[in-house]
Structure formats: structure tokens, C-alpha cells
Amino acid sequence: MKARKIVRRSLHEEILEQIREMIVEGRWGPREILPEMQLTEELGVSRTPLREALKVLSAEGLLEVRPRSGAQIRVLSPEETRALFEAAGMIESSSARLAVDRATPAQIARIEELHRKMLVAYEKGRRADYFDLNQRIHMAIVGAAGNDVLSELHAGLLMRMRRVRFACTNRAEDWDLAIEEHADMLKALKDKNADQLASQLDHHMEKGWQRVRDFVRDEYEQSQNSAVGSSALE
């Protein structure tokens, strides 16, 4: 992804959004250090707001900021990734039961609209749009539970998982399966079937873990080997 000049919205929001997209879409590899000077030129900003954005992305779990080294792409271990999926799944299945009771017609209509947009992105092969809408549907279901604490925890977990999940959305069969599962979730929500919705969300998250498991393991092992090799050369 090539950066575009900052022209709208707040400077802070634009920098965050663009760098986050670059990280998620794989512009830099595991543990690669972000080129600050190059980014300031591409974005047309100074180093101060850029570094503030990098601190936020570090807090979100996408980067590691190290003194004298700079900000580098954070690599998740298989154990940490598994824990993230488990935690997100527990929040989603618990929120499902609340959402069935508390979701307003407007909230259900919004989830339906997000689902329709995701279908369009799916049919047109727009991977980034499909992924973003997929995530927004999950967040909207949790949001319909009417519990801001759960929503905040859930959003933080999804952010930390975002890079590895996007990296594993390149297989057509996974898109097909996710579309079917999301359609079933929407039906369960509209039918006010709490047990069914909770079960589907839990299953969906478990399948998500299975899709990323091998990628995460291989990336982590490669990054560890590279780190050992770099240390040996120093």
C-alpha cells in the first residue's frame, strides 16, 4: 500500500489509520523496523505526530517500540494468539446472549447492512473491504449487547489479532465458509435464538484460530531464527 498525503480529518487520526492499514496489509515483514524518515515524507508530516501514532499502535499490540532501535512489527507467539482467540470468542459468545435481548431494530438493521456490503466485497474480490466489514459485523454484534466494557475489551483483542487474521484471508474457500457462517449468525440474531448465536460465534472464532495457526507458528519460528542469527553476527 502506498501512503497518501494527509489532507482530511485530524492529523492524528489520519496517520494512525494509514499506518495501521499498512501494517495489517503486510507492507513490512515480521520484526521489520518502520522507516520513520520515509514515512514522514510519504505522509507529509513531521516526526513528532508520527512517533505519537507509533506509540498508539504499540499500545494496540501491532508494534514494539524499542529505545535506539525504533518501532518494529510485533510478532505474536502461537500461545499468545491462541489466548487472544479464546478470549475474543468468550466475549462474543457471552455478548450474543445479551444482544438477543437488548439489540434494537436499528442495530439489527445496521448489522444486516454491513452483511450486505460484505457480500458485495466478497463477490467483487475486494479483500481489504471484505475483511474490514467482517470485523465490523463482529464488533456490531458485541456492541448490540449494550455493555461498553465488553465492547472495549473486544475491540482491543481484535486489534491485536488483526494483522495475522488479514494475512490468512487469501483463500477463496475461507471466504465462502465465513459468508455462510455470518448469514447463520444474522438469522440467529433476528430469530432471537441466543444459544444458536452464541454457539455459532464460538465455533466461528475457533475456525478462525485454525485458519491462522500454521501461519502464526511458521512466522514466529522464522522470526525467532532470524533474531538468533542477527545476535550471532553482532
Rank of each mutant, 00 (worst) to 15 (best):
F166G: 00
R162K: 12
G208T: 03
R82E: 13
G70P: 05
H12E: 14
D202M: 12
A87K: 14
Q222D: 09
P49E: 05
S151D: 02
C168L: 03
M37Y: 00
Q135K: 13
L16Q: 03
G44E: 11
A121K: 04
L62G: 02
G26W: 03
D176I: 00
L43H: 05
R31C: 05
H154A: 08
E123N: 10
E86W: 08
K2V: 10
L153R: 12
R171L: 07
L201I: 10
G208Y: 08
E86D: 13
D195T: 02
L158T: 10
G146C: 08
I137R: 13
R68V: 01
E42T: 01
Q107H: 05
A59T: 11
A145E: 01
A140P: 11
Q222L: 07
E221V: 14
Q196Y: 05
R8A: 08
A144G: 07
E64I: 02
V120D: 04
V212H: 04
P35G: 09
G70Y: 02
W175N: 03
H203Y: 15
K2F: 03
I15V: 13
K192S: 10
S77D: 07
H154C: 02
V216W: 01
A172W: 13
L43N: 09
A53N: 04
R110T: 14
R163Q: 02
P49T: 06
